Simulated assay, not measured.
Amino acid sequence: MTDNSHFDYIIIGNGLAGFHLALKMVSDTYFKDKQVALIDPSKKDTNDKTWSFWETAPSQWDDVVHKSWSKASVVTSKTNVELNLNPYAYKSIRAIDFYTQAKAILKQQQNIHFIQDTVTSVVEEDNVIVSTNLNVYSASHVFDSRIPKDFYERSKQCISLIQHFKGWVIKTETEVFDDEKVTMMDYRLKDGKQTTFTYVLPFSKTEALVEFTYFTENVVAETTYDHYIKNYIKEYLNIDHYNILETEMGQIPMTNFAFETYNTSKVTKIGTGGGWVKGSTGYSFKHTEKKVAQIISNLKDKKLPSKGLFKKKYKFYDKVFLKVLKDENQKGEWLFEQFYSKNSVQTMFRFLDEESTFLEEISIMTSLFSWSFIKAFFKTL
């Protein structure tokens, strides 16, 4: 907490992006004299989500990685695609572990100030004026993770779906899980003609996160997720006796909404509110890491913080995939089956990380060749 009202930087939101950015600042001597405030109404002391990602080497997150896997599978009604991820590892981090580590590091820094409050307005003047329920602050630059209000009013005017899900962490009486393999997508259990799949992260031979996920335009009642999770555990995992240790729910926008147009010379939108979630998949962890690194580089080079955060060709690819899912939502199973059965998982990971070569992108596009994809491609153009 601080009695000061002016800061060099204010970060609104202590989520994945906000903490990423603050941690990167305190690791760089360039920012040692910069006063940074983090404003959030929450203490961030609950496990509200799980982040999963892949990478090829040890990283700064290894101390908080809850579990990693060297193998994966994608299961559809037609096939079971077994994936050897080497040299990648698929990793998961529990939000509470990430929050706890981030707070411990940041609270040691004299130039970092935590303010538990709700931001009510952000106004650009000579400085940026940030009003909260309890106070008024100013900053030279603000990093704002809140989703623009316009998104909720205009999302129907762009290509938008919602990745929404509920998961149970269950504990079984006997050893039933292969704790070296994650089920990235299992499409066998469906809710009508919609893109739905089950995601299984085995943390041990007796404990796993089982999550039922939709890629659709509208959400469903909480009891609907419970019905399908329970069904999957019984019919597909063949488990009759278990305890539910934790639950988690979430909604992630999958959209081509132009979040980047809300960046200004004094306010940079970050995280979900900045369009950092990959539109076609909902993955965000590694994309956040890269965008934060770009922001830090821009600040040190006296450039606009938001410069170069997006690559146009990948935004176009995401838009095409979203168009297929929007117009023919039942095609999701086919789409991801083609992805992983006709391309190596290493190629797919590079593509989803936006690090692929042009030849790899041509190969992926060729594997998706269909009338649905052609229609979506030209509609997007």
Score class of each variant (00 low, 15 high):
residue 3 D to E: 15
residue 10 I to H: 09
residue 23 L to Q: 14
residue 27 S to W: 06
residue 37 A to F: 03
residue 44 K to W: 03
residue 45 D to K: 12
residue 46 T to I: 15
residue 53 F to I: 08
residue 61 W to T: 02
residue 69 W to I: 00
residue 74 V to I: 13
residue 82 E to G: 06
residue 84 N to L: 10
residue 87 P to C: 08
residue 111 N to I: 07
residue 115 I to R: 10
residue 116 Q to T: 14
residue 116 Q to Y: 14
residue 122 V to M: 07
residue 133 N to C: 11
residue 135 N to F: 00
residue 151 F to V: 14
residue 151 F to H: 13
residue 152 Y to S: 12
residue 152 Y to H: 14
residue 155 S to N: 15
residue 158 C to P: 00
residue 170 I to M: 09
residue 180 E to H: 14
residue 181 K to N: 13
residue 200 V to Y: 07
residue 200 V to H: 08
residue 207 E to L: 02
residue 212 F to P: 00
residue 215 F to M: 11
residue 215 F to I: 11
residue 220 V to C: 06
residue 222 E to F: 00
residue 237 L to I: 06
residue 240 D to V: 11
residue 244 I to F: 05
residue 246 E to V: 01
residue 250 G to F: 08
residue 252 I to R: 08
residue 256 N to S: 13
residue 261 T to N: 04
residue 266 K to L: 04
residue 268 T to E: 09
residue 268 T to I: 08
residue 272 T to F: 11
residue 275 G to H: 13
residue 275 G to K: 13
residue 278 K to D: 04
residue 278 K to V: 04
residue 285 F to R: 10
residue 287 H to T: 06
residue 296 I to R: 13
residue 298 N to G: 00
residue 303 K to S: 10
residue 317 Y to G: 02
residue 321 F to Q: 06
residue 322 L to K: 03
residue 324 V to L: 07
residue 327 D to H: 01
residue 339 F to G: 05
residue 344 S to P: 02
residue 346 Q to M: 02
residue 357 T to L: 09
residue 360 E to Q: 15
residue 372 S to Y: 15
residue 375 K to F: 02
residue 379 K to D: 15
